[in-house]
Amino acid sequence: MSEATIDVDETERSLRERVRLRTVALYSAVLALVVFYMIPIQSGLVTSFKTSRAVRETAPFVPPGLEGFTLGKWEFAFSALSDGMFNSLLFTIPSTILCAIFGSMAAYGLTLAKWRGQIFVFALFIAGIFIPYQAVIIPLSEFWNVWVDLEARLGFLWGLPLLARKHATIMELIVTHTAYGIPIVTVLFRAQYKSMSREMMEAAKLDGASMWRTYRRIILPLSVPMFAVVFIFQFTQIWNEFLFSLIIIQSVSDPAASVTLILSGLGEALEGVDFPLRMAGAFISALPTLIVYVLFADKFAEGVRV
């Protein structure tokens, strides 16, 4: 009897020992991963606060000393990028919203309504995802500059308050990004709509709701989490996009220049690369995507949950 008690005590102790060991191992692994992933970001961050001399004299991940510390690079980067940031927001936000709305509607029409040829139309959407950016550069620039030429056609607008010639370029970017984003967004929404109960749609039909009312009152509210996913995904995609900006805006000095376009030239000079300035610029231009993640994080988690 007493022996048995001791046995139990001992197995329990060794079990607890093992559990503690596993916890320690787990936490060490997590810590190692955190260090591994954070080092580049940490190095970038400390570099951005260094003077040019401190960059030369210290290792990249070592924080600058008091004499090597400066906010000057951030100030300079901010003043250089602020116009670009504004321009980027000006086309990123509308494109993101338009992509989400059109994508969701297209997915609704392709999934929950029945009509002839919808498979073919859906195949076109799929094909749209796989057209590489590089393949459309020349037709795209031809299209906007020769055929459409919004700046000339909308000439009557540029005299109005708050509008300027650069908005023609912004509009071109909005349309281009929206068109390019719709296929992938449609596929994302379609995956969700396919799993929706057909009986629920039929119930709405029998309740007297039209296609449009069903979309407004049932489908749209149920796709809020997917909208969050699409907002984050498309915002990041469009904000970070470089090639279309390069083709449509063409020049860093254009008043419509986007943040990615300006960033590409920031801190480049004949005498060498200004690393602190580039780092500060990179952090500043990444800020909006971070904010979007934070804003939609809850709904995003709901949207990606299986």
Binding site: M200, E202, A203, A204, K205, L206, D207, G208, A209, L222
Partner: peptide, 28 residues
Amino acid sequence: AKDRDIAMVFQSYALYPHMTVQGNMAFG
């Protein structure tokens, strides 16, 4: 269907998950 003045009860109930009971019943 919507003009036939019928109401149907489905096997899966087909309730609207984002609406309250009140909303579900008022929808039609």
